[in-house]
């Protein structure tokens, strides 16, 4: 069993869990992921590692409650345990030799981009962080990102924090101003990563994206996570999750991500009904 040692509610839908998993913490690197199961009948859900503490032996994940399983996960509290927690899976991000980077996080992607920004900062690289959210109420990790970046830009789709627009608009502006980057790391919804890649492509800037397709085992066994990269089929779990964004077939990725959408909706409704029953019974 894997104990939850810290829980934070970051906004109305996003929560943070710090979990005791000493073996995973010892090896975890930015860009890698874990798979967990909430309980003995749970599905296997992959999460990118948001942070790790080798000394404490803990791994942190940040997640949005979008489906029945993540809703169930969000109900757990400090002191509760997860049935299963396996990792670190996937290949760590290649950050060696980077001098100047833009790290871009969209929504929850900011949580996943945080360890990359932190590591680059520790390596002495100059880091610009661009975070984008739908509105100001759901901004997360602003303080943490500020600490590990040279410049931090926060945008909202509706302009409720003062800077209206998308992360790609900020990146476009920085590039137009003549800012040069060795690498752009973009993590977030597939559509955001796709747009960022469109911005960097004409400049020929290496652009790393972190993909989150549907998978079961995370070790190359099911092939559910296959993505087309440079015309070839890759397994995101073992060949990624980082890929050269300019080579990724994002349209296929988005289509495959929607595979179980209908079933997910039904599951959420069932989950909510059960919760309402519990609440009404009290």
């Amino acid at each position: 069993m894997y104990k939850i040692v810290r829980k934070e509610i970051l906004n109305s839908q996003v929560k943070l869990l710090e979990i005791e998993a000493p073996y995973v913490a010892r090896k975890a690197e930015p860009g890698q992921f874990i798979i967990l199961r909430v309980d003995e009948s749970g599905e296997r859900i992959p999460f990118t590692i948001a942070d790790y503490d080798r000394e404490k032996g803990t791994v942190t994940i940040i997640f949005q409650e979008v489906g029945a399983s993540t809703l169930a996960l969000g109900l757990l509290n400090e002191g509760d345990s997860l049935a299963d927690f396996v990792g670190p899976l996937g290949v760590a991000s290649e950050l060696e030799g980077v001098k100047k980077a833009a790290v871009i996080g969209g929504g929850l992607g900011s949580a996943i981009a945080y360890p990359q920004a932190k590591k680059l900062n520790q390596m002495g690289a100059s880091v610009d962080v661009i975070m984008g959210y739908r509105n100001k109420d759901i901004i997360i990790l602003e303080k943490e990102m500020a600490e590990v970046s040279d410049r931090l830009f926060v945008t909202t789709d509706d302009g409720s924090n003062g800077t209206k627009g998308f992360v790609s608009d900020i990146l476009q502006k920085l590039l137009d101003e003549g800012t040069e980057y060795d690498v752009v790391i973009a993590i977030g919804p597939a559509i955001m990563m796709k747009v960022v890649c469109d911005v960097t492509r004409p400049h020929g800037i290496r652009t790393i994206v972190s993909l989150n397709p549907i998978m079961i085992d995370g070790t190359g066994m099911c092939g559910g996570c296959r993505v087309t990269v440079g015309g070839e089929t890759k397994f995101a779990c073992v060949d990624g999750p980082d890929f050269d964004g300019h080579q990724v077939d994002f349209d296929e990725l988005m289509r495959r991500l929607s595979m179980y959408k209908d079933k997910e909706r039904t599951a959420v409704e069932r989950h909510k009904c059960r919760l309402e029953d519990q609440v009404n019974a009290k």
Partner: peptide, 16 residues
């Protein structure tokens, strides 16, 4: 067409 929605490896189908 192998990456279309609705194409499984036997491993994935059976593991599920």
């Amino acid at each position: 067409g192998e990456n279309l929605n609705g194409v499984y490896s036997a491993n994935e189908f059976l593991t599920r």
